[in-house]
């Protein structure tokens, strides 16, 4: 069955000047269903972030193809938005104006922009912080802004590149629960890259384990846990069996 987002035999080699070329992706296949929450885990440098950038339209691939709705991705588009690991907030803009950035670039009138920002500020739990600057916010709050900014243009697909990796463990747990709540309300297809197996299982419908560089899809795990997900599910035998299975698939790929 053809996927909503489909990568076929995706290959990509970086050629930095004066250094040996790096084969980031070597025949990566993936099919993401509409409305699905799909996570990609893999060893460092396996090309999982690179793949997100290809889907986002910022990185061109060498061979193979990435399709969305059956059409090749040619560049950035308002049907996709990224949440970045290091937040990427404009430091000279308030929370509200950061959220409005994508709408501004699409020439949406100010009235409508403000209305959207107001709604999203509430959705991500930042009501009252509209006029704060990023440096006044904690890491978790910054990523809430990053999420609201990505949602503002109402994309079909959210691309999340280790969005919680820069947060402390407790904030991360909280943000995962928040993300699930927001995902339930906003109903987006999510492509989520992470290093954490727990996080991938807890959030996802399916988890793709990638091989070491050049990255391929090694194995795909269907996460059968019921939704809505509860924190308690993390200590069930089912969760732990999955975790062990994924770890066993992943560990041979890790080059320490």
């Amino acid at each position: 069955m053809a996927g909503y987002i489909e990568g076929r035999n995706v290959s990509l080699t970086f050629r930095p000047p004066n250094r040996a070329p790096v084969r980031a992706l070597g025949g990566f296949d993936i099919a993401v269903e509409e409305g699905e929450f799909l996570s990609i885990v893999g060893p460092s440098g396996c090309g999982k972030s690179t793949f997100l950038n290809v889907v986002l339209g910022l990185t061109k691939l060498d061979s193979g193809e990435v399709l969305m709705h059956g059409k090749p991705i040619g560049g950035p588009g308002s049907d996709r938005a990224m949440v970045f690991q290091e937040f990427g907030l404009l430091p000279w803009r308030t929370v509200q104006h950061n959220i409005e950035l994508g709408l501004e670039l699409k020439k949406v009138p100010a009235e409508k922009r403000r209305a959207t920002a107001e709604r999203l500020v509430v959705l991500v739990g930042l009501a009252g912080f509209e006029q704060h600057y990023p440096h006044e916010l904690s890491g978790g709050m910054k990523q809430r802004v990053g999420l609201a900014r990505a949602l503002a243009t109402d994309p079909d697909v959210l691309l999340m590149d280790e969005p919680f990796a820069a947060l402390d463990a407790q904030t991360r747990d909280l943000m995962q629960a928040e993300l699930l709540r927001i995902w339930r309300e906003a109903r987006k297809t999510v492509l989520f890259v992470t290093h954490q197996i727990d996080e991938a299982i807890y959030l996802s419908d399916r988890v793709v384990v990638m091989s070491k560089r050049p990255g391929r899809a090694k194995k795909i795990f269907a996460i059968g846990l019921p939704r809505p997900r509860e924190y308690e599910m993390r200590v069930t035998p089912q969760f732990n069996d999955l975790k062990l299975e994924i770890w066993n698939t992943l560990k041979d790929e890790i080059v320490a």
Partner: peptide
């Protein structure tokens, strides 16, 4: 930040 603005079109 350059990538952020590019990615948003």
């Amino acid at each position: 930040l350059i990538n952020v603005v590019r990615s948003l079109g």
